[in-house]
Write a protein that binds this DNA or RNA. Structure first.
Lengths: 204, 204
DNA sequence: ACCTGAACACCGTTCAAGT
DNA sequence: ACCTGAACACCGTTCAAGT
């Protein structure tokens, strides 16, 4: 058989120095991204990590791959959080609380919301997959709220994902706008309520 | 008196070649920005215009200055449009129609909504001033709608500006999201309605 | 198997030299 | 008064050469 170039450590355990480099890059990337935002210079990350530029690219072939590694934990927690809220809170409150927490998370790094929403249209991005899990968790909360007639039936999880990222994006653009985030969030949440002519009290 | 460097043609009529260059740059910029978006390469604009890079910077010292020149007409029309709607339509419909048209305009170029909202926090930007006129026109429609109890009183024109740009931004990120723009617009517009406990029928 | 850094093709911005 | 383009300090990405 022909020998494929083989991705880093396909199956086997990675070499110790490779593992060290990867961890070091991730550690430094967290700092740099916190300072400069999601569009931070990757060159700068490699430089500060004391690592060749090629090494960074070997471990994280795209910027999205690096961001995904930085955010993986956070995303997993948010997905779990949705399930916890589903049992602990009534449907409408569960959805509202989760969306609020997601919105705050999407504003964790400057420019993050743009990166997240942009990957909706790019199924190849690792961020696309990472967000999918969250959207599904969000979708379960949404369905429950819709079943109870608390949320209009013409919205889906992608709508909520887009709106939550948009609210984080607004807060991103200027400090004076960040102050408005929670109020605008409430406004959008109100917009999710069924309209007057809708079957609003289907459960009664 | 000391002789100040003097901005291009301070007071006097510009030299004919300068005027030609400025027009040429603007013409080409419109094409390039339509193709590449608001973050298009200024180098590319100068190149395609057959003009030195310094000439572009002389006429348009910042990217925002160039964008402002590209959008000036459009912005003026939108401000006039608000006043026309104010007399031709009932307040709620006037506000809704205007916001919708503004949202479409903010999506005229890819990346434009980001440029517009970002300048809210930068009073030095020529786009800041250009948007101010529109926000004031929008504010008049908003006040009328609020006076009639049709819109919650805790929102201002900046909120509407932020939300409209955010909707344009969503549509910007992926074709599949663009399809949702009008529906999401309607949802946000519904969110502007006064809440249940509010003095919704103050005019009755 | 992994790392390094030069090489390439780009940016935005400034400014000395020209006309 | 205005124009030009080289110069500077950056990018992201690739890949030959090393260990």
């Amino acid at each position: 058989m022909p020998v494929e170039p083989a991705p880093p450590s396909a199956g086997r355990a990675p070499r110790a120095d490779a593992r060290r480099n990867r961890d070091r890059v991730l550690e430094v990337a967290a700092e740099v991204v916190a300072e400069q935002g999601a569009q931070a210079s990757l060159r700068d990350v490699a430089r500060r990590a004391g690592v060749g530029l090629g090494t960074l690219y070997r471990h994280f072939p795209t910027r999205d791959a690096l961001l995904e590694a930085l955010l993986r934990r956070r995303f997993e927690l948010l997905a779990d959080r949705a399930d916890a809220l589903a049992v602990a809170e009534p449907p409408e409150r569960a959805l509202g609380v989760w969306l609020h927490e997601f919105t705050l998370g999407a504003g964790a790094y400057q420019g993050l919301s743009a990166a997240l929403l942009a990957t909706l249209g790019d199924p190849e991005s690792p961020l696309h997959a990472a967000c999918l899990t969250m959207r599904q968790a969000c979708g379960r909360l949404l369905s429950a709220a819709q079943r109870d007639g608390l949320v209009r039936t013409d919205v889906d999880a992608v709508d909520l994902f887009a709106l939550a990222n948009a609210l984080a994006w607004i807060a991103d653009q200027a400090p004076s706008l960040a102050e408005r985030r929670d109020r605008l969030f409430g406004l959008v949440l109100d917009g999710l309520a069924p309209r007057g002519g809708d079957a609003a009290s289907a459960g009664r």
